[in-house]
Amino acid sequence: MVATMSFKTINNVIETWETIRGTPEWEKEIGVGLFAKFFKMEPEAKPIFGFHEDLDVTDYKVLISPRFVAHAMQFVTMIDKALNMLGPTDEMLSEILMDIGAKHARYGVKPEYFPTMGKALVSVVGSNLGEDVFTTEVQESWIEVYNAMSHDMIKGHSEVYTVTKDDIVLRTKPQQQVDSRIWA
């Protein structure tokens, strides 16, 4: 990861994530809330995630549809796995996040979506935890962790490799550089 985070920062995120995991249907709650908020903020991203542009994320029927819920829960599972890897050595997590970023580049995800997704994630986590648990310090911890993780994903996104038949050479095709911080 870009920066070594303090024990307190990582602990704040892990403890509050464990609180969320203790609530009924947490994957569904967080995932659906996250994608509803993200699609409101970035409506042009819907087709990249396999949804039609006119998908109405304010429609309750959409939010409970099996396809929307499954996609949202799959994303939360990915977040859960990444958070479970936070710790003293983040090298493996960095590599995994860079691979995820590269995969998302191939899907057409724009690098500027990463900060928006972070804002949506932090907002949904805060809403689910409430003000008593989601203090300013905890919010700052979530922002720091997301910024570090998204930095690695954007780095991987910008290093999409292609192989051509002509030269059979692996070469890097740099993408637009984006500030990964959700609150710069």
Rank of each mutant, 00 (worst) to 15 (best):
M98W: 06
A36V: 03
A82L: 12
P66D: 03
I143S: 10
S127M: 08
S123K: 06
D132R: 14
R181Y: 02
E137D: 15
T116N: 01
T116Q: 06
E91N: 06
E144P: 02
Y161L: 15
S6T: 15
D99M: 08
T172P: 00
Y107P: 05
M1L: 08
Q175M: 10
H104M: 11
F114L: 10
H157R: 11
E25P: 00
W26V: 08
K165Q: 09
A36D: 03
G50I: 03
E44R: 12
Q139L: 12
W26R: 09
V69C: 03
H157A: 06
N11G: 07
P115N: 02
W17M: 14
L55V: 04
F38Y: 10
G101A: 10
F51W: 04
N12L: 08
G130F: 13
R67Y: 08
K46N: 04
G118M: 07
G126F: 04
P111M: 04
D167W: 07
P66W: 00
Q74Y: 06
E27C: 10
F114T: 01
V138S: 09
P88V: 13
M5Q: 13
V160P: 00
A148N: 15
H157F: 15
E53Y: 09
L129P: 11
I154L: 13
P111F: 02
T89S: 12
Q175H: 11
E15F: 14
T135L: 14
T58G: 01
T23A: 04
E91R: 09
T4I: 12
T116D: 00
E144Q: 14
M5R: 09
S123E: 14
I100M: 14
D179A: 05
Q175A: 13
Y60R: 11
S180E: 03
V13K: 01
I30N: 00
K173V: 15
A184Y: 05
Y107G: 04
F75E: 01
I154Q: 00
L93D: 00
E44F: 11
A36E: 05
G31V: 09
E95D: 12
A3S: 04
V62T: 15
V169L: 14
I100H: 02
Q139V: 13
L129Y: 12
L55A: 04
K81C: 06
E27D: 07
E25I: 07
M5P: 01
E144F: 00
T77E: 07
V138G: 05
Y161V: 15
V145E: 05
V69G: 03
P115E: 06
V163C: 12
